[in-house]
Design a protein around this nucleic acid. Structure first.
Lengths: 181, 181
DNA sequence: AGGCTTTTTGCAACTAGTTGCACAACGGGC
DNA sequence: GCCCGTTGTGCAACTAGTTGCAAAAAGCCT
């Protein structure tokens, strides 16, 4: 049950409307917890019904019929509770590794191209993370919240680094394999 | 839609009953695609209905009586198709990183213990992978299927290595943080 | 033989996430 | 004034995975 807590975190960082949240879930928070706008609207409704958030009383006119939400004390308390609660390590599920295992049985035909696509995409993500690090975490900033956020970003960077290296290695292995299937 | 293909792969490696599959999903295949026994039984039923697998002709089945399955040619073809098909990189979802991000807002109280638990669990998994590597992939074996399976295992080893390092680093940061919340 | 436990299979209900679409409001172009 | 694309919100149906429980066969004990 992480989505509500992802939303609470995002709203604490900055009160937002559903669409703004959706946009923010396409970067930042969404880098390690993705969500679609439908999920977000549904969850906002629930959180409001539970009294963890509320709509900000209307302010600037702007366009549309925007509803902005902010976190109530009960919401902050729930987030703190969840953050501190012990959770079991998630069960791993990686389709790409599964496909490689399958390829050991049914042959590697066609797989190589997709590995290249994945490599490309991990490289792009890595470059983006590095850019964020350069922009948001210059060496002199180290307020506690910054250090935690930087730590999370480092996890992203190191994970993408791992994948680019591993995929590169995998492609090299493929090149050496007899390519019958 | 990976579960059916995980099962096909497992059954091609060795025909099994539902419970045997469940056991195998607790190691090996399950290391990167976990599944519960209920998922597996349901999926076996579907795969049989679709004509991708069949029960081994032993005795007519009844509840509580073992049924073993094997993959039919159509099943192998479907697995080959799926393996070669392009798939988008999965959207990342990691509750632990999310909690760290939340901790930057609501404080780190209580989180440290759970990080230690996770570190312990990743260390255990890493040791297990290393043992499998030692046992199943001595330096002289390199048949093509072995190389692919070894590649997958290397991914597991490197991922667990990353997590142990990152968690160690995170705990070190925590030690330096003012621990008010 | 009678009951007790384990093995093996499975149903049903639930939770979480995805996909496809609907609809209202507003701004801009003509 | 009217169509049209954009912004913003939302419902409904579907797919995938989880949890809790139960029931048939088989072995085990005395």
């Amino acid at each position: 049950m992480s989505l509500p807590h992802a939303i609470l975190t995002a709203l604490l960082e900055k009160p937002s409307s559903g669409l703004e949240l959706t946009r923010r879930f396409d970067k930042s928070i969404g880098y390690f917890w993705s969500a679609t706008h439908q999920q977000i609207y549904r969850e906002l409704g629930k959180l409001e019904a539970e009294g963890l958030i509320r709509t900000l009383p209307a302010e600037q006119p702007a366009r549309g019929q925007k509803k902005s939400y902010e976190v109530l004390p009960a919401g902050r308390a729930e987030l703190a509770r969840w953050t501190a609660a012990a959770q079991d390590p998630k069960t791993m599920r990686d389709p790409l590794l599964l496909r490689l295992r399958a390829a050991a049985v049914v042959g590697t035909a066609g797989l190589e191209d997709d590995l290249r696509r994945h490599l490309e995409s991990h490289r792009r993500q890595l470059a983006e993370y590095r850019e964020i690090e350069r922009r948001d975490f210059p060496p002199d900033r180290d307020a506690p919240e910054d250090r935690l956020r930087h730590l999370v970003l480092r996890a992203g960077i190191d994970l993408e680094t791992f994948w680019t290296q591993w995929l590169t290695h995998a492609l090299a292995e493929f090149a050496e394999l007899p390519d019958a299937d």
